[in-house]
């Protein structure tokens, strides 16, 4: 690859959190381009959190798993926390049987819960300040 180029994956910014999502049809080159762009954006914009929505991914093989683990490590080195949200049940089972547990990668059930775990709340209260099940 000849230096970083814009990847096909959109990366949004919400406050100090970068929000992005992976799609099924991501080839290896695009995946690497995405990693490059995301790490550059984290550094350039001083992001403190990154949410990666993977609810559209129908499979995760060892390449995608490695991409996610490396992203997490790199982001952490740059001072940002990565949350991977919305893994499908079948994907989770397969990943575990494959022997990949995404060590060190934080996960959330869906993008909404991931965002609240990153301290990004719709009513602008501090993280943990709004009990998710306040009606209990």
């Amino acid at each position: 690859m000849n230096g970083p180029r814009p990847s096909a994956v959109p990366i949004l910014r919400l406050g100090d959190v970068l929000v992005t999502g992976l799609l099924n049809e991501l080839d290896d080159t695009s995946a690497l381009a995405f990693t490059d762009e995301l790490t550059e954006r984290i550094a350039a914009e001083g992001a403190r959190g990154v949410l990666i929505d993977i609810s559209r991914l129908e499979i995760i093989d060892s390449f995608v798993a490695r991409t996610l683990t490396e992203l997490t490590t790199m982001a952490r080195l740059l001072g940002a926390r990565v949350l991977v949200a919305g893994m499908r049940p079948a994907v989770a089972i397969t990943l575990v049987e494959l022997g990949l547990e995404l060590k060190g990668v934080e996960t959330a059930l869906n993008a909404e819960q991931g965002m609240s775990a990153l301290g990004w709340s719709q009513v602008h209260q501090p993280p943990g300040g709004v009990p998710y099940d306040a009606l209990r």
Binding site: D28, D61, S62, F63, A65, R66, T69, T94, E97, L98, G99, L100
Partner: peptide, 20 residues
């Protein structure tokens, strides 16, 4: 064997596929 690899991936390719 898991963790053994000469290329990309986590070296789980063959062993992992066998488990599936």
């Amino acid at each position: 064997t898991d963790g053994w690899t000469t290329g990309s991936g986590l070296g789980h390719g063959l062993g992992g596929a066998r488990r599936l």
